[in-house]
Design a protein around this nucleic acid. Structure first.
Length: 886
RNA sequence: GGGCGGGUAGCUCAGUUGGGAGAGCAUCGGCCUUACAAGCCGAGGGUCACAGGUUCAAGCCCUGUUCCGCCUACCA
């Protein structure tokens, strides 16, 4: 037994390392693709391969791990599919930075060598985040780990691209896209972050070609005027009905451009005249198409002005803004400049201001794909939880726009398209074609663009399982059971997986989508490097242990509410881990193999009570987890372990354990203790995998990992625990009595070491008998040397009183008389009762309440009224009695 | 501009068919009681943002106001 004695405090560090390798070595995270057991699967939201674990990952993966571990305990065949995302732009940036340190840029290195360098980088640093997930305790099936640039996944990407192209759902064309000059690539609409900026609205006058004066236009981006090809006014606008000129002269460029009329123009904004720059504004582009206007691209892909910008050529786009304004001022064409706050798009990767830019790109026609994705949620095939996110999902899906999928970077899936140098035919195939399908030429050049990273992520639920092969893995685990994700990637990822999954698998990718909130700092602010309020999860884990950290995340992860993280909170839950540890320490001092079999004839009241409570808590925890109410599950089990099991149960059985009740009672108590602790460890394991595993192995009668245990509610009939409402009620009476005595002790400042005598009076025989049976427990926990149980009658003289149910308790004052204190105490008690009484009486005095409220409610209120009244009467008589002594 | 979420104890938040306002932390008082001072025992503290309405009954349902946060949008 001495070998089981454990240290006084729980030291997580060493324990965590030991058990994680044990789990991995014993393949306890492995899914079985051939099993016919009920399957449960989750694909991890693949973190960027460049990433380091942040709070968002920690929350997200803790939730997934809780569910996976829980489902394993329930006997499911669980697959948690892990992996990382190649993160095109982000990864390319990292490697470019590395090259820059050596004074190189990627163009000097060349595409092929550059990609080699990225792979090398990936080999060296790419598993950092995976190792960090392991420290979090993540029970992923690591042998199946995938990477979006893997061969298999790349094949899936090509296959999908080719098929969509053949179906007409992918096309290439010249459109306005968002262009990041720093990353040197197109971005999808989603990758642009809008931010309010205090800009200016510049009013310029464009002189008429013939007549005097001119039209005044307003713009926030003066440099784009160099590319204007028209000025538009609303055809209804009276101000411009009778202009004689049909053209204006574009200043600085001295280009004659037409005045066109289009209802798009908002007459109430500015002067009602809109400059049209088809190459640098999405709306202008549309108007340009409509009116067959030429496009003049004045901002180049590097962010410098093009040759078409005339004398401004080569200038930085922002310098050019000032230069244009200055030049116009010199010509007296600036009417006015006013402050104008407006929102400006920034690159989500590098925060550079993006420019709408005309360019040839590849697009996915999203509408047809979106329809079925909407339907899947509509019909409830896929549930979005909490439901509130359904609306957001619909909003986006219904207004979906075509998705720009080409990126002008090198790291990523190169688009499987070849363009014929002779006839410009585009050939899209899985493998490089020999000749042009249109003209037979051999001069084919491969498209250099790569695909948006999210394109490959969209295939994740099935590409990771071996698609396009028909694998056993897919058969067993697709569709996945649930996707756990933050709302910030609902559009980026979830929506696109829905579209692709349904289109290519003919089935939804997941039955549930659980959307969780963000982790913020203590003040509720978003964590960001620039604010300096980032809390590093690994730092927290080092300080407080993984289990405490995970429990904190679970306990604060209420649906729809952000998690505000602070070290103080984690510290609180570290105390909980330690509490459990010490309860184990105590238990293990007394338990051995002989206590593992529950075949006891007579259980004590606390035994029956704690078993009944355990049974209830077990069900509550599973119900909560089944509904993704992680915080409810966590707090219920916390409350049970600390305040029921430790505070009450362990205290009640101490006398028996110390042998003061005979051998039979000792064995009975220990057997129940074994069972309750055993089951509690299993309940806690999904939340706190390490400490529970550690205790489990020291626990007598266990074999192997706790991960292989059977969840308490799944136990067979022979060992199932029964609910016992009678025991719960009786225990409540006893604990109330003990608390009442403790309360008097506290309020009267009676030292805990001073033993007291109590007289208890109850008119009910059954109650008296029950209390009599439990008197040892009361004597012990309330620290009494005498307890007499009577029918109501003569009241003890010098005593303080309390009321528990129909019983009145008299705590004898001998030697410590302080009648005035007792008077105050009783008056306080009575005034509390009075408050309650008045609301209850008011209800009963209301005729409508009596006639309209349901009978059971009325009866309940009546009963409450009577109880309160009666308690008050008893307290009052005691108060009167006390007063006679003062 | 459109949409969404929130305002409950000093702090952070629970409160799921409308019927007794709760937890953790913090605070105050008392305890080294042989698992745990990272602990034990006890106590205090709330016009449930504001104003109306529905109802016998509202933290919860409806309307309006206000303050905070977020998402979204092509008003130059």
């Amino acid at each position: 037994m001495s070998s089981r004695l454990i240290d006084k405090g729980y030291e997580p560090r060493e324990v965590e390392k030991r058990w994680y390798s044990y789990w991995e070595e014993n393949h306890l995270f492995s899914a079985d693709e051939t099993s016919d057991k009920q399957s449960y699967s989750i694909v991890i939201p693949p973190p960027n391969v460049t990433g380091v674990l942040h709070m968002g990952h920690a929350l997200n993966n803790t939730m997934q791990d809780i569910l996976c571990r829980y489902r394993r305990l329930r006997g499911d065949n669980v697959l948690w599919m892990p992996g990382t995302d190649h993160a095109g732009i982000a990864t390319q940036n990292v490697v470019e930075k590395k090259l820059a340190a050596q004074g190189l840029d990627r163009h000097q290195v060349g595409r092929e060598k550059f990609i080699e360098a990225v792979w090398e980088w990936r080999k060296e640093y790419g598993s950092a985040i995976i190792n960090q997930l392991k420290r979090l305790g993540a029970s992923c099936d690591w042998q199946r780990e995938r990477f979006t640039m893997d061969e298999g996944l790349s094949l899936a990407v090509r296959k999908v691209f080719v098929q969509l192209y053949e179906e007409g759902l992918i096309y290439r064309g010249d459109y306005i896209i968002n262009w990041c000059h720093r990353c040197h690539t197109a971005l999808s609409d989603l990758e642009v972050e809008h931010e309010d900026i205090d800009g200016h609205l510049y009013h310029f006058r464009y002189p008429y070609e013939k007549g005097d004066g001119g039209i005044i236009i307003a713009t926030t981006r003066p440099e784009t005027m160099l590319g204007d090809t028209a000025v538009a006014v609303n055809p209804e606008d009276d101000r411009y009905q009778n202009i004689e000129d049909e053209n204006v002269i574009l200043p600085l460029m001295d280009r004659i451009i037409p005045i066109i009329r289009d209802p798009y123009v908002d007459m109430s904004f500015g002067t009602g005249a809109l400059k049209i720059t088809p190459a640098h504004d999405p709306n202008d582009f549309d108007i340009g198409e409509k009116h067959k206007l030429p496009s003049v691209k004045v901002i180049g892909d590097e962010g410098f002005m093009t040759a078409d910008a005339g004398r401004f050529q080569g200038m930085d786009r922002f310098e050019c803004r000032d230069a244009v304004v200055k030049a116009l001022q010199e010509q007296g064409l600036v009417e006015r400049i006013e402050a104008h706050p407006h929102s400006v798009g920034h690159c989500y990767r590098c925060k550079t201001i993006v420019e709408p830019n005309l360019s040839r790109q590849w697009f996915v026609k999203a509408k047809p794909l979106a329809e079925k994705a909407i339907q899947a949620v509509d019909t409830g095939k896929t549930r979005i939880i909490p439901e509130i996110w359904k609306k957001t999902y619909y909003d986006w899906m219904y207004n979906i726009k075509d998705w720009c999928i080409s990126r002008q970077i090198w790291w990523g899936h190169q688009i499987p398209a070849w363009i014929c140098k002779e006839c410009e035919e585009v050939v899209v195939t899985m493998a490089a074609p020999e000749i042009c399908t249109a003209c037979g030429s051999k001069k084919l050049v491969r498209e250099t663009d790569v695909l948006d990273t999210w394109f490959s992520s969209a295939l994740w639920p099935f590409s990771t399982m071996g698609w396009p092969e028909k694998t056993p893995l897919l058969k067993t685990f697709y569709p996945t059971s649930v996707l756990i994700t933050g709302f910030d990637i609902l559009f980026f990822w979830v929506a696109r997986m829905m579209m692709m999954g349904i289109h290519f698998m003919k089935d939804i990718p997941f039955t549930d989508v659980y959307v969780h909130a963000l982790v913020r700092d203590e003040q509720g602010k978003k964590m960001s490097k620039s604010k300096g309020n980032v809390i590093d999860p690994l730092n927290i884990i080092d300080q407080y242990g993984t289990d405490a950290f995970r429990f904190t995340l679970a306990a604060f992860a209420a649906q729809g509410r952000d998690v505000k993280m602070s070290e103080k909170r984690v510290e609180g839950y570290r105390h909980f881990v330690n509490k459990l540890w010490n309860a184990a320490r105590f238990s293990l001092m007394h338990l051995d193999e002989s206590h593992t079999d529950m075949h006891i004839k007579s259980l004590s009241l606390p035994d029956r009570w704690i078993l009944s409570r355990l049974s209830r808590v077990t069900d509550t925890v599973s119900e909560a987890l089944d509904q993704y109410r992680f915080n409810d599950a966590a707090s219920v089990v916390y409350q049970f372990v600390w305040h029921e099991f430790c505070d009450w149960y362990l205290e009640t059985i101490k006398p028996a354990i110390y042998g003061k009740k005979g051998e039979e009672n000792k064995q009975a108590a220990l057997t129940v203790l074994w069972r309750v602790f055993h089951d509690t460890l299993i309940l806690l394991h999904p939340f706190m995998p390490f400490v529970t595993e550690e205790i489990w192995h020291k626990f007598p009668g266990t074999d192997g990992s706790i991960m292989k245990a059977v969840y308490p509610s799944d136990a067979d009939q022979k060992t199932a625990i029964k609910r016992d409402p009678d025991a719960e009620n009786a225990m409540a009476v006893i604990t109330d009595i003990i608390t009442a005595v403790r309360n008097i002790r506290g309020e009267m400042n009676i030292s805990p070491s001073k033993s007291l005598a109590v007289v208890l009076q109850s008119p009910d025989e059954a109650t008296r008998a029950m209390i009599h049976q439990q008197q040892d427990m009361i004597l012990d926990l309330a620290r009494l040397h005498a307890l007499s149980i009577d029918i109501p009658g003569d009241k003890p003289k010098a005593s303080a009183t309390a009321i528990v149910g129909d019983a009145t308790i008299f705590v004898s004052f001998e030697g410590i008389v302080d009648f005035e204190k007792e008077e105050q105490r009783l008056e306080k008690e009575i005034s509390k009762l009075n408050k309650e009484l008045s609301t209850v009486s008011k209800k009963l005095g209301n005729k409508s309440f009596l006639s309209k409220a349901p009978g059971e409610i009325v009866a309940k209120v009546r009963e409450k009224h009577d109880t309160l009244q009666e308690r008050k009467a008893r307290l009052h008589s005691n108060l009167e009695r006390i007063k006679t002594y003062i």
